[in-house]
Nucleic acid binder design. Structure first.
Lengths: 199, 199
DNA sequence: CTATATATGTACTGAACGGTACCGATATAG
DNA sequence: CTATATCGGTACCGTTCAGTACATATATAG
């Protein structure tokens, strides 16, 4: 057992609260007072448990990527065909981005799309995460091409970038108030276009 | 002639400087010190000429919409066919969003995608502007449908939302460092999909 | 000229920011 | 029990924020 006085809150639980605030207001738009209020702990406890605002954001982002929408995206990549991957990806995105339990949109997009100097490294981190997802998608399409699942003329890199672009656009739409049905219509249209272009 | 001491700077010129800063750092990420430094004027001059930070942003946004990328978008709407409109829109977006003379991305997207309470009304304003553009695009497609330029089964509303989604996604891509060629590839893929789905 | 009106520059305001020193409380280790 | 280590709460730190008071400078109106 650990020495000292035990912590009186559940770290994961308050981290989820912090995630929710960052998701809603972005990194710069979130103040420490917003965080402590939502998390139900006071400032020194936050610093003791999570380091500082930036480290807290990174931990919230990790949680977002592991337990949140990131998990859904990993499931999509496991679909057996490229077409199924894209369909699952776009459909799940439409659901995720408009899940009433969460703020609308995607943390990796709206967490710090543009910002002042203080948040620059957070912005970079989010860019890298988005780029990593795009690359994993590209690798998945390259595999599909090698397996004959995608045509010989297909371009995995462009395809991955295109799908990411649609998803990121959907995230902006969601942040702007688009409904779940709206986003599903967008996903359907993108899928129809891809299917038609492929044939 | 006007009484009093004349202003020593060109209002439009320093407004362009402010626009550039807001474009790069977003509304919340931009401080008054950033603004005065870039504009080359001091604080009271800024307040005398533009009101306050929020009004300055709105004036910069108006300028963005009139003289900047907004003008390009209006030209696109004037193309004779729906297909030409979309093509021009996506191609111009690819160019605009990566114009080396400007910060990458779109002010209406990254100006305040998510934010704290203080910037809430700015966020709303940007949402409305994006929605207005989408509606104008929808109206253009409805006209095209009425003219027989678009098929009877086409859905102007979904089409407009889809094109906006791709453009907004391209804006996120640009903010993340995508090159002009990258975005043109995205535009081409979207156009191919639309053409194929239409036929 | 004087009177008036507007612009500029310095230096400031109160509030909010992120972050911390410090002390009392509460656990384990021996 | 005492010693030690961590937690929680108050009250604070220096800095930066958006916004402004005020004195000075420079124009026009008469």
């Amino acid at each position: 057992m650990q020495k000292g006085r035990p912590r009186e809150f559940c770290k994961e639980q308050v981290l989820d609260k912090a995630l929710h605030v960052f998701w809603e207001r972005g990194y710069e738009g979130t103040s420490l007072s917003d965080l402590t209020e939502a998390m139900g702990i006071n400032r020194p406890s936050l610093y003791a448990a999570f380091g500082n605002k930036e480290e807290l954001f990174r931990q919230a982002l990790d949680r977002y990527a592991e337990k949140g929408p990131g998990a859904v995206y990993r499931e999509a990549l496991a679909e057996p065909t490229a077409k199924a991957v894209v369909e699952r990806l776009l459909k799940s995105s439409a659901d995720c981005l408009t899940d009433p339990a969460n703020p609308p949109g995607c943390l990796a997009v709206q967490g710090a799309l543009s910002c002042g100097d203080a948040a620059e490294s957070i912005k970079q981190e989010l860019c890298q995460r988005r780029a990593r997802v795009e690359q994993e998608l590209r690798l998945r399409f390259e595999r599909a091409k090698a397996e004959g699942d995608l045509g010989r003329k297909s371009e995995p890199e462009s395809l991955a970038r295109y799908v990411m672009t649609v998803m990121q656009g959907m995230s902006v739409q969601a942040a702007g108030g688009a409904s779940r049905a709206d986003l599903h219509a967008v996903a359907d249209m993108a899928l129809r276009g891809l299917a038609a272009a492929e044939s």
